[in-house]
């Protein structure tokens, strides 16, 4: 992995002229922006606006066609697959709209899985992560035995257990009812309050309002 250089010591994420093309189609076109450490930013836009494409680049699930990308001070644009994998494991926490829990592992084991791919498993800290999202009583339950809100909180605990500096949430309340949506947003706000950098993808303006700042996308371009 490239050595960490800090051109902008305040920026957690810094993109310059970032583009991603699929054939002749530009899913993301010349995006430039910066997200400060500790900032809570919402990526918003209609379907097909390029939110997911940008999210995939920021979470190192994809590589840009051109442009610069610095994540936590590291040049991520030129990462090969192995470097992207390692960066994801060490620096990025992912919260998915569809939770993506392993169905045959308990809540605790699902959280420990992230530790397993990061370094070593630590049951005590996995328990603490679940306790922090209010699931101390659901440690040994399988995902099928949890409500949607509980599954999303397990997903958040899994994203946080390795204490990554960057937390990405892709439509984190998209599959939740109002009560669970409020609960998940409370957790995100608390994490933001603790100084964590959070990037949340949403198409819901009400959710976007929870963020400090909104980056809007339209037809693959950032718009004011």
């Amino acid at each position: 992995m490239p050595e960490e250089t800090r051109e902008n010591p305040v920026a957690a994420i810094e993109a310059r002229h970032l583009s991603r093309r699929f054939g002749s189609v530009a899913a993301l076109d010349d995006a430039s922006f910066a997200i400060a450490r500790g900032e809570f930013v919402a990526l918003m836009g209609a379907s097909g606006s390029g939110k997911t494409t940008l999210m995939n680049l920021l979470t190192c699930l994809d590589t840009p066609s051109s442009g610069e990308l610095r994540l936590n001070g590291v040049d991520a644009a030129g990462f090969d697959e192995e470097a992207r994998r390692e960066f994801r494991a060490r620096h990025i926490g992912l919260v998915f709209q569809q939770f993506h829990l392993i169905p045959y592992l308990s809540a605790l084991e699902n959280v420990m899985l992230a530790q397993h791919y990061h370094s070593v498993t630590d049951e005590a800290s996995a328990r603490r992560a679940l306790e922090d999202v209010g699931l101390a009583h659901r440690l040994d339950h399988l995902p099928s035995e949890l409500s949607g809100g509980e599954q999303q909180r397990v997903c958040i605990a899994r994203a946080l257990v390795n204490e990554p500096p960057l937390l990405f949430a892709d439509e984190p309340t998209g599959n939740l009812d109002a009560e669970n949506e409020a609960r998940v947003l409370d957790i995100l706000r608390r994490l933001h309050g603790e100084g964590r950098t959070i990037v949340m993808v949403t198409h819901n303006p009400a959710l976007g309002a929870y963020a400090q700042r909104i980056i809007r996308l339209q037809h693959g371009r950032i718009v004011p």
């Binding site: 699930l61 494991a89 993506h100 392993i102 791919y117 990061h118």
Partner: peptide, 16 residues
């Protein structure tokens, strides 16, 4: 497939 995709997203190498 989804399970393996998730494992990769969490940082698992292909070899693992």
């Amino acid at each position: 497939q989804r399970e393996f995709a998730l494992q990769k997203a969490l940082g698992a190498a292909n070899g693992t």
